[in-house]
Every structure is written in C-alpha cells, then in structure tokens.
Design a protein around this nucleic acid. Structure first.
Lengths: 98, 98
DNA sequence: GTAATAATTAGACAATTGGCTAAATATCTT
DNA sequence: AAGATATTTAGCCAATTGTCTAATTATTAC
C-alpha cells in the first residue's frame, strides 16, 4: 500500500481542503480549482498527487474530469494513523462517536 | 492549533516510526536513535519537528532527554483527519473497534 | 475543420527537506 | 576542574516541493 504517499498528500493544506470538498460529493477539476487562489496548472499537480496516493478517483464527463474521494483508501489512511499509536488513539476513538 | 505542522510531521516515515516507538512508552533520544541508521544529529532534527508539532514532550533526566508521545495532541490530529472527510471516515471508525 | 473551453504536461524557480559532519552545550564522574 | 557521555545547534548539500507561465491534449460547438 502507498501509505507514505498518502501521508505526504495530507501534508499540504490545499490538498486537505480538496479532500474536504470532495467529501461533500464529486466535483470537476474546475469546480475544485475555483475554491483556491492558485493557477489551474498548480491545482492539477495537486490532483496528480492525490491520485498517486489513490485518495481520489477520476472519470471523464465530456470536457471535464470529475474527481471523487476514494473513501476506501481514505479509511485505510485513518486506520494506519491509528496503528501508529493505538494507545494514544484509543481515547480519541472513544470520544469520536459518543 | 498547529495542525499543519502535525500533518507535515507525519509525512516522514522516520518520524512516524518514532511515534510508534513512543506509543510503547517514553524513551531517551539515544534509545530512539538506536533504532535508525541515521546520525544522531539528524534524529535530533526529527525530534525538533515532532516537538514543534507538539506531538511529543520532553523532560531531562540527568544527561538524557526523555521523549514521550503527547497523546492529547495525537488524538487531536486523528480527529482532524476524521474531520477532513467525516463521511468517508465514518465506516473506518465503525470498523476500528468492532 | 476551426475556434473555444477544460484540463494536463513541461520546464523554470525559490523555498523547504532530510541527510551529513563539526562544533557547542549540558550533565555526570572522577 | 578535566574528561567522558548525551544531545542539540550550525552550516552545508542534494533532492523534493509548491508555485508559476507557456505549450499540449481532449472534447465540444459552430
């Protein structure tokens, strides 16, 4: 699994925000880009990283590329984070859904 | 909160492993360093980052510096990750403790 | 098939990163 | 106070990162 890449992907605030937006439902590259004061090309670079990490999937819809959150892999990452420090995580876990 | 820094701290495999070791209990800088094929000074740099992110705390015990996992902040990070994609996280969460 | 729109790729740039060695600091032992 | 041990700080370097503009590819509309 591409764990390392996933953590790196999460290290950037823009990419975290992209994932946040995608959790609300799939969006086109353009729709996503509109949320940031960054050149489209730079956004594309972020998309590429997220894809490498398998955190998002894409499909083409005509002229547009539609991005979706890969929930499966996102879940894997959460689990891996919990694995790093199961003890510490335990109580966060408890509190997460009371 | 220093969220961004925490995610950056997690982006490096060496640092993730340090946290993993610390989840087993506090350890001195030397004990931690012994687990890696990296110069002590380089390890010190990693420690410094983890401290900046508040993921570890330190105390001096004679000649040694003892590192501990800051479970509180680690939990915060887990929560923040869950916040990025609550929908996606939900099922990971479910499965985490059956 | 030509022009317009959406997105990506290519190449350049400064800034950051992770590693190193050497030097500095802090503590303990004698 | 001098030497040994543990750790950190200071510089240095190559590799990676995040951004940009310009050029390219893919699709749609005329």
């Amino acid at each position: 699994m591409k764990t390392g890449i996933a953590f790196k992907a999460l290290a950037d605030p823009t990419r975290r925000e992209i994932l946040r937006l995608l959790d609300g439902g799939e969006k086109t590259a353009g729709q996503l880009a509109a949320h940031f004061p960054i050149a489209a090309a730079s956004m594309s670079h972020h998309f590429s990283l997220l894809k490498q990490a398998d955190l998002v999937t894409t499909r083409r819809d005509g002229q547009q590329i539609v991005y979706s959150l890969n929930t499966t892999v996102f879940q894997d990452v959460v689990r891996l984070l919990l694995d790093i420090a199961p003890r510490a995580a335990r109580s966060a876990d408890e509190e997460a859904k009371p």
